[in-house]
Design a protein around this nucleic acid. Sequence first.
DNA 1: ATAATCAGTGTAAGCGCTTACATTGAATTA
DNA 2: TAATTCAATGTAAGCGCTTACACTGATTAT
Lengths: 339, 339
Amino acid sequence: MGEYLRPTLDDVARAAGVSTATVSRCLNAPERVIAPTRERVMAAVTALGYTPDFGGRALASRRTNTVGAIIPTMENAIFARGLQSFQEALSKAGKTLLVASSGYDPARERAQMEALIGRGADGLLLIGSARPESSVEYLRRRGVPYVGAWNLGPGSDGFFVGFDNAAAASELTARVIARGHRRIAMIGGISEMNDRAAARIAGVRNAVETAMLDGGLIDVIEAPYAFHDGAEAFARLMERTPRPTAVICGNDVLAIGAMQRAREMGLNVPEDISITGFDDIDISEMVNPGLTTVRVPHRRMGEAAAEMLLKLINKEPVERQIEISTSIIERGTLGPPPS
Amino acid sequence: MGEYLRPTLDDVARAAGVSTATVSRCLNAPERVIAPTRERVMAAVTALGYTPDFGGRALASRRTNTVGAIIPTMENAIFARGLQSFQEALSKAGKTLLVASSGYDPARERAQMEALIGRGADGLLLIGSARPESSVEYLRRRGVPYVGAWNLGPGSDGFFVGFDNAAAASELTARVIARGHRRIAMIGGISEMNDRAAARIAGVRNAVETAMLDGGLIDVIEAPYAFHDGAEAFARLMERTPRPTAVICGNDVLAIGAMQRAREMGLNVPEDISITGFDDIDISEMVNPGLTTVRVPHRRMGEAAAEMLLKLINKEPVERQIEISTSIIERGTLGPPPS
DNA sequence: ATAATCAGTGTAAGCGCTTACATTGAATTA
DNA sequence: TAATTCAATGTAAGCGCTTACACTGATTAT
């Protein structure tokens, strides 16, 4: 059955009876080739099933039309959604998106940066703003533009499109306090190497301190991103005395896990305990009662990030930070504390 | 501030006072270079911040250590999960994963195939088994191995790891019938260009016909993959006379949407109406009552697919099909029909 | 002491492609 | 009619890397 060899430009040229240059032109600038020739070449391309080799092309043209994205994990729906619109925006501009995941590990993020840049990525989408200075320095030296998303950057360095996680968390907390809650606990995401999770925790803390509640923030538990982790953390929180009357969660997944455990424990939400989330994922509207949460327009963030990165790549002027506004969605899980 | 130029192998060689061959060897087969030399070279690599150029490397070595995956959409959690474990398995084998999405469009799938192969993908992961013969032919000619996942292949052609969507759907339907339901309706995924959705619908149809129910299958509505689409389809189904006593959904997202609408309509699940899903996504356990569904071990499928593809790439012998077994998870949403 | 071996390194030929420049011949102009 | 222009195509030089082969000097075997 004989090994099949990928046809090369040369094979096509020979088959069409022209030079490789003409074939290349047919593919990249068809208007520079007269119609009959072009047709002959294209026929050969189809007949041989030729596809240009990316490596050769990138090497010769020093362009790749590729951008890379490194997200912590594909399993988190909010990144998936933002990434989908990011990709749609890019493909309109004729760019291909390469996706890699870091598993929240800065070393792996760095390795993926190198892999993507080695593959010729013209620009990178990264999540958040917390990463080792050495990684940032590496990007700077390479001259590879990147934008951080899902959070705003610290100081004036770098380009970001995101929202103020801390401020949004504070605002939601203030809302909880306004409802009369004085014993508040939090289930946050794992804050290590995750500036979004850390900022949300800080925001809640800050709001509680500002209001100078007598009891203040009873407890903060950090938990991985899974329903059952939220459930377990909730159970632990309910053992505290005095018991919190409201549990603020760092994301909707944790919040829904908490709700489920509350139901299992025979606690009614919000009569016995209030619960809030963050992100407004699809399911938050479907649970019963609906989850009070912070809505983050992930799609819009993806689009804005694409637009920003494209401008950066084309060396057009851009603003350093694009702030996406969030809003609080009040549904049923936040009520007054039990009397 | 001067344009920064990517350092090349040559720059490193010059800085370290060795030949490019030695630098290349330090990177690819360090044991072939004596320690002092290697240290000098590595120092130069770090000092210059050198990262090998993928294009050049691929061109020269004719290997890429890259595999591609083309999924319909990143927004579907079940693909995300399987893909995550697929990637983990690959990266253990030193391969990089490139992900592209087709949006359920065969033409875009084909374009992405070309893009990934052009980028040197040694193998491809595709979803399902339904695609134009021309695409299959293209892969065959190229000699690029691929495995289809999430479904089994038709006939004896190609390599697949998945499960029998139709059989699993039939089995679940039989369970519903055994509970006494005689008026059954279905909300399926959009079956066009989606062999998994089509197979699930066919499986349900088949089971109903086999049992030769008097009323038979009342109705099948196809709906996109979103909670609210499930909700709307459910509402339409409830207008039918006679009303179905059980609604079998093609996936859990549709089922949960249906459950929510049932609650809004004042219908109790399962007392007034039974609902079932398919996939067993995380949230299905958290809703109230828990969703009766078919569990699909997505992670295991991702791992098996990686293993299979790796063997194919290494030209090791493999079985044509790996069947992943599914199981029915009975939770609260399936009960006897109202009397 | 000489020959054989071998580890460590260098030399140089491409890999498949793009593109600056050279060439050709037809159309245009003087 | 000769000179000029220009569109269409060809020629060939790399892009950054790997690797077969050549070379060198030290170690080992004879």
